[in-house]
Nucleic acid binder design. Structure first.
Lengths: 121, 121
DNA sequence: CCAATCTATCGTCAATCGACGATATGCGTT
DNA sequence: AACGCATATCGTCGATTGACGATAGATTGG
């Protein structure tokens, strides 16, 4: 059925599907320009921001609200009530698992183990 | 139109929409459990892997091929021909921009600037 | 040369996403 | 009490995604 790679000795990935789903959900939360933009705005002005995220993003209020809901649901941001507004801010640590995976990838890249690749596409 | 946050002095985000789209595309490439799984497998066995990604993922061959196509299109992986198989491996640096954003977020978290949050949901 | 193997592509179908306007809610202000 | 503001939710519509089987290409092995 194959060769070309180490035959994957030992127990496969520990409990892959669980973490896979978790990481995928985090990535999915970021998988839209508007949501990336929101995260970046919240990152720049490290303090929270209220309603003018709507102006910033440039989509309808209901649409932005939906994007905020998705980010909140993924735990990426949280909202503090400040009537009549809500101040959103980045939530600590929520993205850590995804960041960890990406760091691993970059780390491996940095190791310079990649041979000159005769790529196929 | 609001208060609660620093009024965003200086030029806004440099050329936001471009980077936003780029980062979102990267995140989107990872926004599925099967694709996360592929990345993790390629990360574990640092050498490339051939066809048995299909077995590993547990979906139909055509479906896995599609996921590989998406990852390849995003530049996350690359394939080296090794007839009649193709050995996939993580592509250097492709995920760096996303990793950078996430690092920034985590960095800010680490700064401990987040007050105890009376959250709203 | 024929069969087997690995991979990519196509067509299809259900499910989900993203956008919007309209509307509801909740709370200060007048 | 009535209004205005910021936000959330609902319903809808078109576009995209994810899954699959079927099929086509390419190459190795007999």
């Amino acid at each position: 059925m194959s060769a070309c790679c180490p035959p994957a000795t030992g127990p496969r990935v520990p409990d892959a599907t669980l973490d896979d789903a978790r990481l995928a959900r985090l990535a999915r939360a970021l998988a839209h320009p508007a949501r990336i933009h929101i995260v970046r705005v919240l990152l720049e002005r490290r303090s929270c921001i209220g309603c003018d995220l709507v102006d910033e993003v440039g989509l309808a209020q209901s649409t932005v609200s939906e994007h905020l809901r998705i980010l909140k649901e993924a735990g990426v941001i949280s909202g503090r009530i400040e009537r009549p507004r809500i101040c959103y801010s980045l939530a600590p640590g929520a993205l850590a698992p995804l960041a960890a995976l990406l760091s691993s990838v970059l780390e491996q890249d940095a190791a310079g183990i990649w041979p000159a690749l005769p790529v196929e596409d």
